[in-house]
Amino acid sequence: MIQKKILSLDTIGGRIAFIRGEMRQEDFAVLLGVSRMTLIRYEKGERQPDADFLKTIVAEFGVDGSWLLLGDGDLPSIKLTPREAALLDNYRHCPDDAQRNLETMGALLAQSSAGKKKVG
C-alpha cells in the first residue's frame, strides 16, 4: 500500500510539495529548471528557493505568490477525488464540535498510518 505523506502548509517547502502534488519530483524539478536534489532540499526546508524558482512556480501553476512565499491568502484549488469530495462535504455539514472531533480523529489516523511499516 502506498502511503501519502501529510504535508505541512506552514512552510514554503510544504507549499512547494503541495503544488507538485502527485507529480514525480524528477518531472517537477525538470519543469522548473532545478535538480531533483535541489527540489528535495526545498521541500524538506534544508534550502530556501531563490526568487527565479518561485517566479517560475507562480507562472507555471498560477498560484498566488503571496501564498507560496508566506502562506497568506487562499489555498490553490486542487482536484478532489469523489471520495475526498464526499468527505469534505460531510465535514462541512457537521456542527462545530463534530468537525473538531473529525479533525482529531483524522490526525490520529494519519499518525497511526505513518507509523506502520510496509510489509512485503
Rank of each mutant, 00 (worst) to 15 (best):
L54E: 15
I40A: 08
S35E: 11
L109I: 14
L109W: 00
G45H: 02
T11W: 04
L54W: 03
D97L: 08
K4S: 07
Q48H: 08
K116C: 11
Q99D: 11
A51N: 12
I19L: 09
L39H: 02
R36D: 13
R47I: 09
T11E: 09
A17C: 06
Q3P: 04
R20G: 07
D89F: 07
G115R: 15
F61R: 08
G120A: 12
D64Y: 07
S35G: 15
V30G: 01
R15L: 08
E60C: 13
A29W: 05
D97I: 05
I78Y: 03
N101C: 10
D10Y: 08
R47S: 15
F18L: 05
Q3W: 02
Y91S: 06
D74C: 06
F61A: 07
L31C: 02
L32F: 03
A51L: 14
R36G: 04
P95Y: 08
F53R: 01
V30Q: 14
L75E: 11
M105S: 09
P49Y: 01
L54H: 09
P95Q: 07
N101Y: 11
F53P: 11
L31T: 14
M105N: 01
N90P: 02
D74M: 02
K116L: 15
L109S: 00
A114V: 08
L70C: 09
T81G: 01
T104H: 06
Q3D: 08
K118R: 12
T104P: 00
D72L: 13
P82M: 04
L32I: 06
I16P: 03
H93K: 14
E22P: 00
D89K: 14
R47T: 14
S66A: 14
I12F: 01
Y42S: 04
K4G: 04
P82T: 10
D89C: 07
F18I: 01
W67S: 13
S112L: 14
F28D: 08
A59P: 00
L69C: 13
R20P: 04
T38F: 00
D89T: 15
A86I: 03
N90G: 12
V63M: 11
G33P: 06
T104K: 12
W67T: 13
G65E: 15
K4N: 12
Q25R: 15
H93W: 03
P49S: 11
L7C: 01
S112R: 13
R83N: 09
G45S: 03
G106W: 00
P82V: 06
G45P: 03
Q25E: 15
L39W: 05
R47Q: 11
L54D: 06
I57K: 05
S66G: 12
F18C: 00
E22H: 04
G33L: 12
